[in-house]
């Protein structure tokens, strides 16, 4: 038997199809979680299948609980899932976040995350009615900082962070009006 989420959005960009997570995405996601590439995510998550599963099922369960969530980014040309990105608002998050992760090293450097985030920010503002959004970034995650700046985000010194560590950077996205302008 299958239990499916009904009426979940599918977004497309030039090179990506973005959809809700599926079971077949787990192994590529698990490989990412068990690699050194995860060091900037969630305060350096534990690298094993237990934590990979909890994180993956959490991403999935966020959808029915919140009514929105993180999309898996599928490379149209290969059909392979290359990362996840989008609206994220788990318990204890001070405000709505737009997050991103590229899972496989070979998918990096192709601007997939930038392409996805332009569409996902539009989705958050236009479809979900968000009036603002932030991205929480590890101060040593230079690639994500560069992407945030490329997306027009501004570093905010005083905004609260989910980790309460005084280190996580908060990048504020341009407002809906600024994005539309």
């Amino acid at each position: 038997m299958t239990v499916t989420l009904s009426n979940t959005p599918v977004l497309t960009t030039e090179r990506l199809t973005m959809r809700v997570p599926e079971m077949a995405d787990f192994e590529p996601f698990c490989a990412f979680v068990c690699s050194d590439r995860v060091r900037y995510i969630g305060g350096g998550a534990d690298k094993d299948r237990l934590h990979a599963w909890r994180a993956f099922a959490h991403i999935t369960g966020h959808w029915p609980l919140r009514g929105f969530g993180t999309f898996v980014l599928v490379d149209k040309s290969s059909g392979a899932p290359v990362g996840s990105a989008g609206p994220w608002f788990p318990e204890c998050w001070p405000e709505h976040e737009l997050g991103w992760t590229i899972w496989a090293p070979e998918a990096e450097g192709k601007s997939f995350a930038h392409e996805a985030l332009i569409a996902l920010r539009r989705h958050a503002y236009a479809d979900l009615g968000w009036t603002t959004a932030v991205s929480y970034i590890d101060p040593e995650n230079a690639r994500s900082i560069a992407l945030a700046e490329r997306l027009g985000c501004r570093l905010e010194q005083t905004a609260p962070t989910p980790f309460g560590d005084g280190q996580t950077l908060v990048y504020r996205h341009p407002s809906p009006a600024e994005v539309a302008a």
């Binding site: 997570p21 599926e22 909890r54 099922a57 959490h58 999935t60 959808w63 609980l65 788990p90 204890c92």
Partner: peptide, 21 residues
């Protein structure tokens, strides 16, 4: 609360991934 949410949400997410939860 953060840990409890991860448990709660992942148990809910299990349904669409595995067909039970």
């Amino acid at each position: 609360r953060k840990g409890a949410w991860a448990e709660f949400a992942s148990a809910a997410g299990s349904w669409t991934l595995l067909g039970f939860g």
